[in-house]
Every structure is written in structure tokens, then in C-alpha cells.
């Protein structure tokens, strides 16, 4: 593709006045596309690139709330590298994301397969499945907070009434109990999104493929492995990317349930960043924690995009 403005030798452009070059750009058909893109680019730069860039810049300063900082280089990162609370939060975030995403995927896929069958009251059941997703996170978090309460937990109470335990379960007061409890709450909330999206994917699979496979004597597992799964991978790639991103950056659930406690055992990078930046006023350090999330997120996107998108048309080739 020829682009006269770009390919013009430097000697020639210098010879002409600036005004003519600008006039040329204004009307050049090669630049027309660029002018059409300007509004969208403006929005993206203003609302995405600028805040992101500002966050990264803040992480290299010692800015506090209400006071401008000075450039301190990598000082924030050096401090975080030796901060055990920060590493705990990294560990928690990875554990939380891995376990919760895997669980959400398995349960979501199972639910989707189930809902794809001919059930009585199918439409109603499908709508019901969405409920955890519709309820505002803070509300469901408060519900879970009561369920996990140290004194008034419904689970502890029921088990005590049944005589199975003799003291309340310390859901949020014990390090590992708290981690599993928050993961469970996240899974509960995240499953419907995955189930419904995968269900939509399942419905695009042509029934004739299953018919043909059945005639060839394929078992249900073989039908799943060789028809459903390959045709579902593009949807899985998209849905898991979103799921991992949402889980990795989860904030509300943890904040409402534990505030990162007990003793920072459930602090995620997002909650720790908020606590340090906004509550404690150390904007620079909080920004460094947020910035430290970026490589993890890029890696997650990379894996989902290039690992799961194995079909040619997804990478721009023809699908033959």
C-alpha cells in the first residue's frame, strides 16, 4: 500500500512549506481513515491510556494524598520486593484466581451442558441460574458475611443443631478457612456468567454433527471430546479470559467480607493497593502495587488468546 506522506523522501518534504504538507494530509485519501479514527482514539487515550499512564507514573513517585510527590525511581518497587505483606497478597491473588477460575470453569461447563438438554421449565431454570450474577456484589458479599459470621453463621448453627460440631466454625478468623471461604463466595458469584456464555456457545453447535457422530457409533464422551469441545474453544477462550481478569482484579467481595484480614491472609493485590493508596494515603506505593498487577494480567490474556485460539480463522487465516 502506497502512502505518499510517509514515503516521501525527507529532502522533498523539506523543500515544501509546512502549510502545503498539512493541506496534503487533510485531503489525502490515505489519511482519511486516520481522521475517522481520531474521535475513538481520543476517547481511548483520555479514559484508558491516560489513567493507566498516570498510574504507572505515580508508582515511580512518592505522591501522597493531597500532596504532589517527587520522582523516586524504583524505590516503591524495591520496598515492595521485600514486603512480606505484598508477597502474601501476590500469593493470595494467584491462588484465588487459579482455584476460583478453574472451579468456575468446571462447574460452569457442567451447568451449561445440563441446561443445553431438554429440561422441563428450561427458560425459567436458565433465568434462575443467572441470579447470583445479577445480585450486586456488595449485597451478596454481605449475605456471605452473615453466613460466615464467627458467632451467627447459619452453617455453624445448623451443624450444631445436628450435633455434628460442638463449636462454631471459624470461617473468616482462620487463615486457610478465610481463603477457601472467599474463594467459594467468588465461585458462587462467577459461575452463572460462564454457564450462560458457554450455553450460548453450545447452541451454535449444529445438531447434525451429533447425529452423524451418533450414527457412526460415537460414545457421549467421544461426542463431547471431538465435537462439543473443539467447537466451543473460541467461546472458552473469551469467557476464561474475562473470568480470569475479573477474578484477578476482584475487590468488592474481599473488601466487604474480610478487609484483607485475618492478618492480611486474604488481601488481594487490588485490596492491598486500595488500603495503601486511598485509606493510608500512600498513593505512590498503592500505584506500584496496581502496576505490579499488569504483567500478570498480560500473561493471563496471552495464554488465553494464543493458547486456546488454535483455529486458523481466529488468527486471521481462512477456516478450511
Amino acid at each position: 500500500m502506497a502512502n505518499s506522506a510517509v514515503e516521501m523522501p525527507a529532502r522533498l518534504t523539506q523543500a515544501r512549506s509546512e502549510r502545503t504538507a498539512w493541506q496534503k494530509l487533510k485531503v489525502s485519501p490515505n489519511w482519511l481513515g486516520f481522521w475517522y479514527m481520531v474521535p475513538a482514539m481520543g476517547i481511548l487515550i483520555l479514559f484508558l491510556a491516560y489513567p493507566l499512564g498516570l498510574g504507572v507514573w505515580l508508582s515511580f513517585t512518592d505522591t501522597k494524598i493531597g500532596r504532589d510527590g517527587v520522582f523516586v525511581g524504583l524505590e516503591n518497587y524495591e520496598w515492595l520486593a521485600e514486603d512480606s505483606v505484598f508477597w502474601t497478597s501476590v500469593f493470595n491473588t494467584l491462588l484465588y484466581t487459579t482455584v476460583a477460575s478453574a472451579a468456575k470453569f468446571v462447574i460452569g461447563l457442567y451447568l451449561a451442558l445440563l441446561l443445553n438438554k431438554h429440561l422441563p421449565f428450561k427458560a425459567m431454570i436458565r433465568a434462575l441460574v443467572l441470579i447470583p450474577f445479577i445480585v450486586p456484589t456488595v449485597l451478596s458479599a454481605i449475605a456471605f458475611w452473615w453466613i460466615y459470621d464467627a458467632q451467627f453463621s447459619i452453617i455453624s448453627w445448623s451443624l450444631r443443631q445436628l450435633g455434628w460440631i460442638d463449636h462454631n466454625i471459624n470461617f473468616l478468623g482462620d487463615v486457610w478457612n478465610a481463603r477457601w471461604s472467599t474463594i467459594f463466595a467468588n465461585v458462587w458469584r462467577g459461575v452463572p456468567f460462564i454457564a450462560i456464555t458457554l450455553l450460548a456457545g453450545l447452541q451454535t453447535v449444529s445438531p447434525s454433527l451429533y447425529e452423524a457422530a451418533t450414527l457412526d457409533g460415537a460414545t457421549p464422551w467421544q461426542r463431547f471430546r471431538h465435537i462439543t469441545y473443539p467447537l466451543l474453544t473460541p467461546i472458552i477462550a473469551v469467557v476464561m479470559t474475562f473470568s480470569v481478569l475479573f477474578t484477578f482484579t476482584d475487590f468488592q467481595l474481599i473488601w466487604a467480607l474480610t478487609r484483607g484480614g485475618p492478618v492480611n491472609a486474604t488481601h488481594l493485590m487490588a485490596t492491598l493497593s486500595y488500603q495503601r493508596a486511598i485509606i493510608a494515603g500512600q498513593l505512590g506505593e498503592g500505584a506500584a502495587i496496581s502496576t505490579a498487577m499488569i504483567p500478570f494480567l498480560l500473561a493471563a490474556i496471552g495464554i488465553a488468546w494464543y493458547g486456546l485460539q488454535t483455529r486458523k480463522w481466529q488468527q486471521g487465516g481462512s477456516n478450511d
Binding site: A150, Q151, F152, N168, L172, G261
Partner: peptide, 20 residues
């Protein structure tokens, strides 16, 4: 009483008023 490591500002009010 067990669970104080998970307590927030309202936990002791609730437990006290419940007589626990």
C-alpha cells in the same frame, strides 16, 4: 470468644446484644 481475628466494627455489638 472464638473468631475475634475476623471481627469488624460491628461484630462485638452484635455478639454482645445477642447475649454471647
Amino acid at each position: 470468644i472464638p473468631g475475634t481475628a475476623s471481627w469488624n466494627d460491628s461484630s462485638n455489638n452484635k455478639a454482645f446484644l445477642a447475649g454471647e
